[in-house]
Computed example of a mutant assay.
Amino acid sequence: MSSMASSEHYFYVLHCGDDSFYAGYTTDTLRREQEHNRGIGSKYTKARRPVQMIYKEVFGSRAEATKAEAAFKKLSRKQKEQFLSVRGICIAGRKNESESEEKKDATAKKL
């Protein structure tokens, strides 16, 4: 009665070690995140490990999930951050903010 094919299709977003985002499609989010972290997930993420899955959205068909993936990939960095922010995920400028604070502190010490 039950089919081996998954009826759940996911669009997901990874936050990469270099502070970039990677969007993808899968039917198994846990397996896919592990593959990316083992260096067999994609060429893009291989050099940007570790990665962390920060967002996933389930769809009823592969077509719907890959459409969401394609739409996300077309967004600017700022738009991607806004997309994630309205869904409760705040990533915006984590590294940049801490670097800015360090620069401000260094400048203040010079004065």
Rank of each mutant, 00 (worst) to 15 (best):
S2P: 14
S3Q: 13
M4D: 10
A5F: 14
E8S: 09
Y10M: 07
F11M: 13
Y12P: 10
Y12T: 10
L14V: 04
L14F: 15
C16S: 14
C16K: 07
C16E: 11
F21G: 10
Y25L: 01
Y25W: 13
T27W: 10
T27C: 14
D28H: 13
T29L: 14
R31Q: 13
R32D: 13
E33H: 04
R38C: 13
G39S: 02
I40G: 01
G41I: 12
G41H: 09
K43M: 08
K43E: 12
P50I: 08
V51K: 00
M53R: 08
Y55I: 06
Y55G: 14
Y55F: 12
F59A: 06
A65N: 11
A68M: 02
A70S: 13
K73A: 03
K73N: 09
K73S: 10
K74L: 04
L75P: 01
S76W: 03
R77N: 05
K78W: 05
K78M: 00
Q82E: 13
F83Y: 14
V86A: 02
I89L: 06
R94I: 13
R94Q: 05
R94P: 00
R94D: 08
K95M: 10
E97V: 12
E99C: 12
D105G: 07
D105Q: 13
T107E: 15
T107Y: 15
A108F: 04
K109T: 12
